[in-house]
């Protein structure tokens, strides 16, 4: 057995052990039912919830908005990073902003955004995109910084236009780093949307979770939380697989 495989087995064993331990603690009453449902119950509740379909609207709304925020953040973030890569002085000026950005409670701007865009989905998508975009910018810049100069010279020798150089040389070369940014952007889009739904909203998974919390409705709250975690882990696993393929192609593991 290769060490990698052995590690994976251990990892699975540990996770199974953790869930099993939680199950035992819940069933034996060390964790009471008002605090947490046993894991098997949460999974069953989730299946029932999805089959029942009463929350499908809320789930679809949240995931759709998060997807929109993600796409906006990726497109805007990558373009802005390429721009900053060329505008050295602007980038030096904005560096401290990027370093501080994630310490700022972005949700404080939510009321302002509601006034600007109305109480629809727009301010939520805006917050999600705002949160995600800087992770994309920072990681894309990181990738662009590492492009070997000789590849850019090769682009010039092949008479590529600025557009083609960005499209055919810079972005493919920075792709692994852009994917790292994308993984964070997935989480930040979800955080933005769900956080905004927690604070002020009339629907969506965040709203349903906090509503369930206030009504001690653990049969609804835990499955919804689990669903969000599953969605984000699934998307991240897919992106990580893709990243791995790219890295392997380059002889890096």
């Amino acid at each position: 057995m290769t060490p990698k495989k052995r590690a994976a087995l251990w990892r699975i064993a540990l996770l199974v052990g953790a869930v099993g331990g939680l199950e035992i603690l819940c069933l034996s009453g060390h964790i009471d039912r008002l605090t947490m449902q046993p894991p098997h119950r949460i999974v069953m509740d989730l299946v029932a919830l999805l089959a029942g379909g009463e929350l499908n609207g809320a789930i679809a709304k949240t995931l759709r908005n998060a997807a929109l925020a993600f796409v906006i953040a990726m497109v805007a973030g990558v373009s802005f990073a390429v721009l900053l890569h060329y505008l050295r002085s602007l980038r030096d000026m904005l560096d401290p902003v990027f370093a501080t950005y994630y310490a700022i409670p972005m949700f404080a701007f939510y009321p302002l955004l509601i006034v600007l865009f109305g109480l629809g989905d727009t301010p939520q998508i805006f917050i999600g995109a705002m949160l995600a975009v800087v992770a994309v910018i920072v990681n894309t810049l990181n990738g662009l910084d590492r492009i070997p100069r000789v590849l850019l010279k090769t682009a010039r020798v092949n008479q590529l236009s600025a557009w083609d150089t960005a499209r055919l040389v810079m972005l493919p070369c920075a792709a692994p780093h852009i994917l790292t940014g994308a993984k964070l952007a997935v989480a930040y889009s979800l955080i933005g949307i769900i956080g905004a739904e927690f604070i002020m909203s009339t629907g969506g998974m965040g709203y349903e979770i906090s509503f369930a919390y206030m009504n001690f409705d653990n049969a609804k709250m835990y499955p919804l939380i689990l669903l969000i975690l599953l969605v984000s882990i699934a998307i991240n696993t897919l992106l990580a697989k893709w990243e791995k393929i790219l890295m392997a192609r380059r002889g890096l593991s």
Partner: peptide, 29 residues
């Protein structure tokens, strides 16, 4: 090396989940 082979992917996965959704659980705990 072995411990990190086992646990690093777990940490990476935990890093990338939207932790904001966990607040009700922490409140209950």
């Amino acid at each position: 090396r072995f411990a990190s082979d086992v646990l690093e992917p777990v940490l990476v996965a935990l890093y990338s989940i939207p932790k904001i959704t966990l607040y009700p659980i922490l409140l209950l705990m």
